[in-house]
């Protein structure tokens, strides 16, 4: 997940977490396998109707209500996390609610173009942000980085913190479960397992790369002291032409966030319609704008009341770590089991 990639090294710290990333990544493949079974079934293409056929309408509405909660939590953490970064590095004196408003306005515009176009927006988002990883390549080869920063590679004590690290990694792998909701817009579903496996492998590689680079750059002991290690690494980069590369990179990174939040906005709108029994009616601009407004108000409120990064005990982030892990575990499992039961009866 986007924001988690930025803060991940802080939660892992110890070099042996390298193995954990690989192990959890392989476990994540099981979830992906179960999800692909769903995509290959005939229910997936039907979208809402498919879910109704399996779970029944009441159950789907219940799930939609629960889903709204998860979506809210996820978006709040993503967007407030990003705003935190922007505020720290670019605009220290700007009221965060303004940034929130502007970002949501962009997302609203993208999302209002419709689901199909929003999904295609990922191409732009990917092309704009994927190359950033390459910039970090230079950092581990500085003279102050030595291979000894990666030692010892095996754990000699296993504390609560390590468990939390594992939970965090699992949560960071979550996200593919939301693809289930976008199934009707995919046209090649036969090869989906292959594509998702490639995606998963890329994620493992990305997390490993970020983590090892930050270990070499900071060293295991200094890493825990930083709040936004990846951003600090980017801040350390320097180009002869323009010194603050981080400003450009953070701004460009917004593409990714806009994509994710737009998708979640649309999902939120859809889920609200299902809960209100309006899923058969035509979608309206007003309804969509209204759900965006609700979104804005809710995020603003949690920004004012709950998001306190400074105390290091951010309850929303903690919740999201758990929520992400739970959805990634149970959504594929639920779909897989119900498919099997349906197949048998």
């Amino acid at each position: 997940m986007l924001y988690f990639a930025i803060i991940m090294p802080v939660f892992l710290i110890y070099p042996y977490m390298i193995w954990m990333i690989i192990i959890v990544g392989i476990l994540s493949q099981i979830s992906i396998f179960m999800l692909s079974k769903w995509f290959n079934s005939m229910y997936a293409s039907k979208g809402y109707e498919g879910f109704v056929e399996i779970f029944g309408e009441r159950m789907v509405r219940l799930l939609a209500i629960i889903g709204i909660g998860f979506i809210f939590l996820k978006v709040i953490v993503i967007i407030l996390g990003y705003i935190e970064v922007v505020r720290h590095f670019i605009f220290p004196s700007v009221n965060t609610n303004w940034m929130l408003l502007f970002i949501l306005l962009i997302c609203w515009y993208v999302a209002s173009l419709g689901m199909a176009i929003t999904i295609r927006f990922i191409v732009i988002a990917f092309l704009c942000t994927a190359w950033m990883l390459l910039l970090l390549l230079k950092l581990p080869f500085h003279s102050f980085a030595s291979i000894h920063d990666l030692f010892p590679l095996i754990p000699y004590e296993w504390t609560m913190k390590s468990w939390k690290g594992v939970l965090f990694i699992w949560s960071a792998f979550s996200g593919p479960e939301y693809l289930v909701l976008l199934a009707p817009w995919f046209n090649k579903r036969e090869k989906i397992l292959k594509y998702m496996t490639i995606g998963n492998a890329f994620t493992i590689f990305e997390y490993l790369f970020i983590f090892i680079a930050s270990l070499l750059f900071f060293g295991s002991h200094y890493l825990g002291e930083n709040k936004l290690p990846v951003m600090e690494m980017i801040r350390y980069l320097q180009s002869p032409v323009f010194e603050r590369i981080d400003m450009i990179l953070i701004s460009v990174y917004l593409f990714h966030f806009v994509f994710a939040i737009s998708i979640f906005l649309l999902l939120f709108y859809g889920a609200t319609r299902i809960t209100l029994k309006k899923s058969k009616d035509q979608t309206t601009r007003l309804g969509f704008a209204l759900s965006c407004a609700i979104f804005f108000i809710c995020i603003m409120m949690s920004n004012e009341l709950l998001w306190k990064k400074a105390t290091n005990q951010n309850i929303l982030l903690e919740l999201e770590i758990w929520a992400g892990a739970l959805t990634y575990l149970f959504v594929p499992l639920l779909l897989f089991i119900s498919l099997k039961r349906k197949g048998r009866s």
């Binding site: 030692f151 010892p152 590679l153 095996i154 000699y156």
Partner: peptide
């Protein structure tokens, strides 16, 4: 003194 597989 740090080695990959020994306790620091």
């Amino acid at each position: 003194t740090l080695k990959p597989f020994s306790k620091p």
